[in-house]
Structure formats: structure tokens, C-alpha cells
Design a protein around this nucleic acid. Structure first.
Lengths: 241, 241
DNA sequence: CTCCTTTAGCGAACAGTGTTCGTGTACGAA
DNA sequence: TTCGTACACGAACACTGTTCGCTAAAGGAG
């Protein structure tokens, strides 16, 4: 690529920096860049060095604006939560709104690679996290739940949504590791492996598994998520009556 | 300490190794040692070097018996699942047995530091994992569920138990990071921090959170787990009728 | 306009990590 | 006793998050 040695600058000129592209770093920019790296290369590809490189600097520069990687992850996660759109709360239709909220949050988490891993990695307390908590808590209390019930319901629902998104992100990681980018290519490959393994088990010791392989692999991620969500909602509805 | 320099061995004797403590490594021993390290120092303290050191060797030696760290983690996790005791299945009492199964698995996962993180880190397919799956699947199918329903229920229940144990393990990690070993010391400290944060929020924008701080922090891990489990079971029971 | 204080940026290094390569040694078979 | 081979392992590689000081720029004071 061109000449291999650089011409040294004249010593009387004090080797000015590339340009005035300095004094640019701030926390928002770092978080934004981090989210972009995460979307492009996954959570495993998100390192302080990688983010710094994207900003044309070294990793040490980030620590002036962010305490450590965990804090950066929390900030990125809260930024993602900012994409969750909430309707006007209508306690008369709390079941539908709760279902819609879960679907919306699930959608947002799944739309950002494996950010869901950060969701479970800590107890989120960012501004957007409390915004969502206030919405759910208010909806359920106004619908007639006791504050204690509403708190528990919020806690369990959040755990369920995050956990499911996290589980989905694992497949995302494995798919990426296999060099694929389209879930459509990866899914049958994975299902094939698992069903083959189930079928290879001894029939006498695992009669139910071997006899119901098709049922075990029948449903994909979306159906599984909805099924569990419906279980939780049915349990809540039973408590309300 | 003693003399700081070692007397070199005579060159005509080819420097025999310490003793006949060789040709000892095998997969079971590595898994067993790994589990011991995990229990003693947590999942973050579990490194290939640490396990090798415990066995008096170098990290490279492990790779003859274990493909990589992920495989070692899967093996350790399945070893832990081996501690789960199952009763004779009685489909007439499927609800009680399912609840007892969940409690037992939850207990085992919580009794091994933060092994739950490994539970969610991959789709477990070890011998003990399929043993548990066969039990739950058989119980629910014999109780009258369709194979598809039973598969979905197994999947969601497993996810819920693992996720809750994982969430609990996070507190374990934070407690360890704070230098404490007894949850009794850590819990009020954590609860205090969170409730203080909730109380500091502006009342006009977060009326429900600020008005119900006590309810939000009222229940501990065990109550939360049981509450969510009951929700799932109620949902399943509603489907059966 | 000049000098000085403050502070953000950043190069280099540290102590770790998982994993691989090539060497050599100790065992079981001949 | 000798040989061949499979296993153990020291050393190294390419990473990671994080910290320490030095450099140099920005902003205020005189």
C-alpha cells in the first residue's frame, strides 16, 4: 500500500494533531457507538477497545465518561429500553395492554442482537427502566390489584420477558458462530441436530421423549413466548376474580 | 522459604518428575474439580488455569479431555443436575409433583453458587438434563396433556426456574464483590439502596413507584419464585379443565 | 496578549483470560 | 529391554478490562 515509511514532519512544527477533531467525546456518543457496535457484531464483539477504535481513540479515553464496562452496558441497555413505546394506560383493558406491552418489549429486545444478555446481567435502574416499571405498576394497581400483587406481577413478567429474549439471543450467538446471518438458514439446522439427538436416545429409558420428538420441536420461539405469557396472564386473571 | 536457590540435580540423572502422580487426568476428575472450584470461588473464579492449578498441572492438559470451557461448563452443570431427586411419577397429583419438582430443582441450583448462569448459557443436553425432561414430560402427558402442551409447559417451566436461579446468582455475585459471604448481611444493604433510589424519584412523574416503595421491596427471592410458579401452574390448570 | 491552572485525551503497561503448537516424557506392548 | 505412541505440559498468541502518568489543549486571570 504505497510507501512503507512515513516522511517525518519538520521539527520546527510541533506535529499538530490530525485536525480539530478533538474534545468530542461524551457519554452519549460512547453509548450510541457502543450500541452500534453491539448491533453489528454482537455482545461478544463489544469491547472497550472496539468502541474506542470506532471513535478513533484508545480504550483509556472512555473511562473519563464511563466508570467501567458494566456501566456502559447498563447505559446501552437503557438506551434500548427507550425504544419501547407505551400507550395511554387503560385499566379497563389491563390484560390486553399487558400482553401488548410484553410483545413490544420482546420485539425491542430481539431487534438489538443479544442485548438481552445485558438485561439479565444486572438490576436495571436507568431512567427508561423506571419509566416502564411505572407504566406496568400503574396499570395493574388502577386495574384493582394490591400494590404487593402488582409489584410481584411486574417483577415476574419482567423476568420472563428478559429470560425469553436472552434464550433467543443464545441462538443468535450460535448462529453467528456458525457463520450464518439469517435465522431462516440456521433454524432447521439446529432443530435437525436436536431431534436427531432425541431420536438416538434409548426408547426404554426415555419413552416419552423418543415418542414425541415432533411435538418437542414443533413450536418456534414466538409460539413458545406467547404460550408462557398466556400462562402468566391466565394466572393473574384468576387472581383478580 | 529456606534456601532461595535450588540445588541442581545431577546431570546424569534425568531429573525425574516429583513422583508417580501422573497419568491421573480424566474427564470426571476435571469436572469434579471444576465444580469444587465453582462452589468455592464462583463462576467468575472458574478458569481453565484455576482448575488446572488445582490439579497440579497446566491449562493445556485439560484440553485432552474437554473440548473447551463451554463444554466443561455443560458437564459441570449436568453433574449438578444429577443431584436433583425425582419421585415416582403420579399423574393424579401432577400439580403437586410439578411444584415439588420446581422447588427441588430451584434448591439444587441455588446450592451451587452461581452455576445457574451456566444453565441459561446453553441448551443443556446432558444425560441428567434429559432424565429430568423425561420425568416432567411423562408426568404431564400421563396427566392428560397433549404432547405439544406438555412440551411447551416443560420448556417454559425450565426457563422460568433457570432464569429465577440466575437472577438470584447475580445477587450472589454482587454480594461476593462486596466482600460479604452471608446473604443476611447483604440483603438489607441492597434493599436499602434500591428503596432509597425509588424514594428519590420525582413524585409527579412516578406516582405509583414512589407511593409503593414498601410493596416493591416487600418480598424476597423465595416468595417471588413461588408467586411466579403459582401463576404458571394456575395457567396450566386452567388449560386442563 | 500572555501566562497559568485545570482537565480531557491517550500511549503504554499490567494482570488476567481461552486456546494452540510443538516438544518431550512415561507408559504399555512387543 | 526396546520401541512406538498417546498423553502431559511449557511457552506463546491474541485477546480482555483497567490503571498510571504524561501531553497538550481549553479557559480564566492578570
Amino acid at each position: 500500500m504505497g510507501s512503507s515509511t512515513e516522511v517525518p514532519p519538520p521539527p520546527w512544527r510541533k506535529a499538530r494533531k490530525p485536525a480539530q477533531i478533538r474534545r468530542q467525546l461524551n457519554q452519549d456518543l460512547i453509548v450510541e457507538t457502543g450500541l452500534r457496535v453491539l448491533d453489528a457484531e454482537g455482545l461478544d464483539g463489544l469491547s472497550m477497545r472496539r468502541v474506542a477504535q470506532e471513535l478513533g481513540t484508545g480504550p483509556a479515553s472512555l473511562y473519563a465518561h464511563v466508570a467501567n464496562k458494566d456501566e456502559l452496558l447498563e447505559l446501552i441497555y437503557d438506551q434500548v429500553l427507550g425504544e419501547v413505546r407505551l400507550p395511554e394506560p387503560d385499566p379497563a383493558q389491563w390484560q390486553d395492554q399487558l400482553r401488548a406491552y410484553a410483545a413490544e418489549m420482546h420485539r425491542v429486545l430481539n431487534s438489538h442482537a443479544d442485548v438481552a444478555r445485558a438485561a439479565l446481567a444486572g438490576i436495571p435502574t436507568g431512567p427508561n427502566a423506571v419509566r416502564l416499571a411505572e407504566f406496568v405498576l400503574g396499570l395493574l394497581i388502577e386495574a384493582g390489584m394490591t400494590p404487593r400483587q402488582a409489584s410481584l406481577a411486574l417483577d415476574r413478567l419482567t423476568l420472563y420477558i428478559s429470560a425469553d429474549a436472552y434464550e433467543g439471543s443464545l441462538h443468535y450467538v450460535k448462529m453467528r458462530a456458525a457463520g450464518l446471518t439469517d435465522p431462516k438458514d440456521y433454524f432447521p439446522l439446529f432443530v435437525g441436530r436436536v431431534s436427531e439427538y432425541f431420536r438416538s436416545l434409548p426408547r426404554d429409558r426415555f419413552p416419552h421423549i423418543t415418542a414425541n420428538v415432533d411435538a418437542l420441536i414443533a413450536d418456534g420461539g414466538e409460539e413458545r413466548f406467547t404460550y408462557g405469557l398466556d400462562l402468566l396472564l391466565a394466572g393473574l386473571a384468576a387472581q383478580m376474580s
